[in-house]
Design a protein around this nucleic acid. Sequence first.
DNA 1: CAGTGGTCTAGACCACGGT
DNA 2: CCGTGGTCTAGACCACTGG
Lengths: 245, 245
Amino acid sequence: MTSETAAALAQTDPRLPLHSRVKEDLVRRLRDNEWDASTPLPSERALADSYEISIGTMRRVLAEAAADGLIERHQGHGTFVRRADFQHSLFRFFRLGGDDVPGSRILSRQIEPAPAPVAAAFDLEPDSVVLHLHRLRLWQERPFLLEDIWLPLPLFDPLAKVETEQLGALLYPEYETRVGVVIGSASEELSVSRATQDQARLLAGDQGEPVVRIVRRARTHAGDVVEYRESYGLASSFSYRVEIN
Amino acid sequence: MTSETAAALAQTDPRLPLHSRVKEDLVRRLRDNEWDASTPLPSERALADSYEISIGTMRRVLAEAAADGLIERHQGHGTFVRRADFQHSLFRFFRLGGDDVPGSRILSRQIEPAPAPVAAAFDLEPDSVVLHLHRLRLWQERPFLLEDIWLPLPLFDPLAKVETEQLGALLYPEYETRVGVVIGSASEELSVSRATQDQARLLAGDQGEPVVRIVRRARTHAGDVVEYRESYGLASSFSYRVEIN
DNA sequence: CAGTGGTCTAGACCACGGT
DNA sequence: CCGTGGTCTAGACCACTGG
């Protein structure tokens, strides 16, 4: 008699150390959203029993997952998933008073040939068509961020068809529910440019005023780039903070 | 009967966990150059015996020291103090695009009362004196970054005494070899401002031109802030990359 | 109070490297 | 071959959290 959980280890390479195989399975379960942010994982004792390993080995796995930032452990309370929150990370770029979600107004949505950097990011043939969203983000009714978002097709067909009014202000939850795509990591490049006439008009600034430009390539857990995004905001309202570990 | 090694733990805070106290003592011995690069540390069994702790606790201490980059462990061979090899960490904290090592010219070095944000970062009393370096970083013979670096005293006394010409373009290796401080993590804050007259002159730009300001607080592995750095560069030549995982 | 994670023990056995 | 570090076990006890 082996538990269903322990049997899942059969999917992993038996030549690897046991703690590696258990961690691999645990990471998979975390990625599969087996626990939400408010539900603690089973206790380390229960997990050790379900994997049919000793408590010491289970603790090693959990300690590594915590070191990787995948989970948070609190003595006397429990172990919880810690999902990367990219929406929140974008807010780090701009000085915003509180924790409110900014509004979003989609200015246009069209299917078009991929611009060169987009095609390169998605590893597509030149002139492949992609979905292009252009939107304005608002903070307390005031525009503060202009975004161009490109998404590969046919993967993102569901977003090409839904009414734009039905899309929430945060896109990544929409990717997850409508497309089944979970963003796992991203790279961002920041630079400073001058506002074009259009940008100045939409951001309520002056033409030629410094603007911050952020290029984000968002990837699935498997590492495939599935979103290419350019964001522009007035440099005067710019503030960014990052941790380097 | 207690061994001399185990008795050394009496110098550490008995309220701390045993593994922390053992690690503290081990780090001290590593700093005191008790073993050179060609001499292995005693085996984990021998160390555990000398500290009169279990092998499991000793292994935990050694694993942490290895994770901190203080030692290297090789199965079947032994445990050694880490060779001086900064190649891996060189670019971890240099995030302005490009892969070349920039040049460095130190403009001034003085001991002065800590400005308020510096004192706050180091958790010092107001008016405590700190070491202040002012330097210009060059890329392909052209100035591109102006830096103010504050370091706590007396910890960084060695850097206050060495000839500034002897300091390399990269400071963190100097911290490691001259001060025994290893940088383990950092936070950075970016914003956009306008060039002062001095900044414009040193950076070969125009007064009032947009400049990017980066405030970095660098920490040891233990989490103590040991460097406060403000960097300024012309926004027009600015590029910043970050990975979000 | 019960249940959680944190610390610590005292081993056994395995994989690897150099002699 | 021997000694090294790497893996894994099967617990005990403590410290902390929440109801």
